[in-house]
Structure formats: structure tokens, C-alpha cells
Design a protein around this nucleic acid. Structure first.
Lengths: 110, 110
DNA sequence: ATGAATGTACGCGAATCGCGAACGAATGTA
DNA sequence: TACATTCGTTCGCGATTCGCGTACATTCAT
């Protein structure tokens, strides 16, 4: 059960008690404990609230992604990127990638 | 029920039948129909599979975000960006933003 | 016209959710 | 040292609701 593992890790890192989280979500301590042990599955609503509480995404909690913070590979068809609210064009993204690579190249040759 | 609305929209846009989705997830047609009508809630596992099937995120399905594709404003503290799997530094992001703005400036003055 | 496919709704049995309670272990307090 | 509090774990119970098969009306295609 991926979500129980993720919840357990996050809570321990933040050094929060079961009771604290239960209070935040307005559920019983034993209920949340069930989530971490894998004995119970949180409702969809609870998953959303837990993601907010832990400052992560539901995709991370559910194990769809391993990135705790939404991290994006800057590559072509993948992402829609904006600057000042305006979409960066594909050509511009190509240039950005080239720029970063060139910069790293120079760094590595120092 | 946000997820039922999202599922319904996505399926209609793709012009998929209830049966098709049910087959993909190995569940009964009536089960998936319950998700769209709001009569039932999908399991966490089903939510993951649906996000994959529709090519979106669980955060979008659950209504945590309104962005169907993770689209991001290229600004400082927001996101972790990578090129070739390696994180782009803050300084580099600043340079990228400046680059895009300068480029647009030139375009606008033509 | 008729057979297949679609979307919708319902009842049933089984699964499981959320809760309170109880427990030992660890920690804090007088 | 005694005692209370907090912590994490586990269990049984009642209530919820999940997933399935089924049935039905509608639409589509032959």
C-alpha cells in the first residue's frame, strides 16, 4: 500500500503525532492510524486534505509519481510553460534547453 | 462531486464509451457509470488508473488543481525544473525568464 | 425491422469505513 | 519513586457503500 508508506514517511519527517493529523482532518486518531498501517484506505476527500496538509500532491501520496514536489522535465511535448502568464513557445523551449546544456558544458570543462 | 464531473468531461471529449473504460480498468460498466453519476466513489487504485488512462493527474481528477496538464508559471519558488534529469538552478531560471522577456520585447517592437 | 451498443438505475451481498475503547510503551511531572 | 499524560497499535461493532449483475429505454447500424 503505497499511500500508507508515504504518509508514514511524511509524518515522521515533520515529527507530527497521529493525534495532530487526526485533529486537522477532524477524524479519529485510530482512523488515521489505519491509513498508515494500511488497515484502512482514506476517502478521496481525505487524500486531498492530506496532500494539502503535507504540502505535496495526491499523485505523490498515491504513488503515481515519486516526485514529492511537482518537478517537471523541460522537454518538448511534455509541458506547457508560461512566463508572465503567457505560454512559452516550442521554439523558445528548445532554446532554453540548449542554453542550459551549453551553460553546463562550460561549467564542466572548468 | 468533482471527480464525477471531471470523468464525464474527459470521457465525452475522447468519445469513449462507458464499456470501453470499464474494460480498461477491469470493472463492470455499471461500476464506472456510478463514478460519473456520483453514485459511487472509485477506489484509490481506480483513481490512479483513470488518471493514467485519461493522460492527466489525480490532482486534476480530484479537483485539487484545475490544470489538466501540469502547466507551470516559470517563476522562482514555484517549481523544480529539470533538464536531462538534472535540476535547473535558481540563477538559471532567472536567466531563462530574462531571456524570454527580452525576446518578446524585441518581437513587440518590430 | 431487428439486433447490438449505449447510458441509466436499482437491489443485493460483501467489503470496509470511521469510531470508541483498550492496551503497553514511552515520556513528562510532582 | 509514584503518577499522569501522551503516543502508537489493535480490535469489535455498527453503518456505510462498494462492485456486480440485471433490467430497461434509447440510439445506432445492418
Amino acid at each position: 500500500m503505497m499511500i500508507s508508506k508515504r504518509l508514514s514517511e511524511l509524518r515522521k519527517r515533520k515529527q507530527w503525532s497521529l493525534q495532530y493529523i487526526a485533529d486537522q482532518l477532524n477524524i479519529a486518531k485510530s482512523t488515521y492510524a489505519g491509513y498508515e498501517s494500511g488497515y484502512r484506505q482514506p476517502s478521496l476527500e481525505a487524500v486531498k486534505e492530506l496532500a494539502t496538509l503535507f504540502g505535496t500532491t495526491t499523485d505523490y501520496l498515491l504513488g503515481t509519481t515519486d516526485e514529492e514536489q511537482p518537478s517537471i522535465e523541460l522537454t518538448l511535448p511534455t509541458v506547457r510553460l508560461t512566463v508572465d502568464g503567457e505560454a512559452v513557445t516550442e521554439d523558445e523551449i528548445i532554446q532554453l534547453i540548449a542554453f542550459i546544456r551549453a551553460k553546463r558544458d562550460i561549467e564542466n570543462k572548468k
